[in-house]
């Protein structure tokens, strides 16, 4: 862990200087409703902590968790089906890719029309932008299982079930973790976009409300919070990954 931290040091230094630059720039422009300074944002975050942490963060996390869970189940199922049957692959793969050309943000207001201001319109936005990387990455993982390995097991008298659990699953595990690490930030973004477009609570909704009040620091504060949560989640997943996957690379 220590080593990893040292590896991040150059990035940290750069980030620090960018922040200083931003701070100086913002102080020079001196128009917090357009460009609030980092310090203003942090102090706003502190002022708003009560409502942000008790009302809006839980709301956003609820949407994120639900959307992520549905995306994982859907993505893994699609990947399994495409891996198992070439016909399904030919049928589904192009549609899955095409689904990503839909400008989600543009049609999200429609979801609000269809599903109302409740949680499901946001969950749908989240799922729509999250399931894709999971599907594709897990599918790649399943495909990475080498046919020679399967043949070796078959020559021992293995069943298809043996091949799946002893080769496909371990081969896919590293890919699965990569997929989750991509999916977590995406699902948070998805939830925030959904809330931005129409909601009664959530960090995305809160950010937008601050926008209408020309509170620049108030727009940024929930976004900073979202980024922090996303980074924290990815870090937690990386720790779990290190415990579960002790090998990587060449099979």
């Amino acid at each position: 862990m220590k080593k990893a931290n040292r590896g991040n040091l150059p990035a940290m230094i750069l980030l620090f200087f960018l922040m200083v630059l931003w701070q100086l720039g913002a102080m020079k422009i001196n128009a917090a409703y357009i460009l609030p300074s980092p310090l203003q944002i942090l102090s706003r975050l502190w002022e708003l902590r009560q409502v942000l942490f008790t009302v809006h963060l839980p709301a956003t996390m609820g949407v994120t968790a639900l959307g992520l869970a549905i995306s994982v189940v859907l993505g893994v199922l699609l990947a399994l089906v495409m891996d198992a049957s070439p016909l399904c692959r030919k049928t589904l793969y192009p549609l899955v890719v095409a689904s990503q050309t839909i400008p989600t943000t543009a049609i999200a207001p429609l979801f609000v029309l269809w599903f109302g201001y409740g949680i499901w319109s946001k969950v749908l936005v989240t799922v729509l932008i999250t399931f894709f990387p999971i599907t594709i990455t897990v599918y790649d993982g399943l495909q990475s299982a080498r046919i020679e390995m399967a043949e070796l097991l078959l020559s021992y008298g293995a069943t298809g079930r043996d091949v799946f659990f002893k080769i496909k699953v371990p081969c896919t595990l590293p890919y699965f973790f990569s997929a989750i690490k991509m999916a977590v930030p995406l699902s948070i973004i998805g939830a925030a976009i959904g809330e931005w477009l129409g909601a009664q609570s959530g960090l995305g909704y809160f950010s937008r409300r601050m926008m209408t009040q020309l509170d620049g620091a108030g727009v940024f504060a929930p976004i900073v919070l979202l980024s922090a949560v996303a980074m924290l989640a990815v870090a937690v997943i990386s720790v779990v990954e290190k415990k579960v996957v002790r090998w990587r690379g060449e099979i």
Binding site: E148, S155, G157, I167, P170, C171, W247, I251
Partner: peptide, 19 residues
């Protein structure tokens, strides 16, 4: 069909890296 008829050792050692 598939089954255990013999001990087959392929060209590469095929040791599974996760085991």
């Amino acid at each position: 069909g598939h089954g255990s008829y013999c001990g087959y050792m392929p060209q590469k050692d095929m040791l599974f890296p996760w085991r």
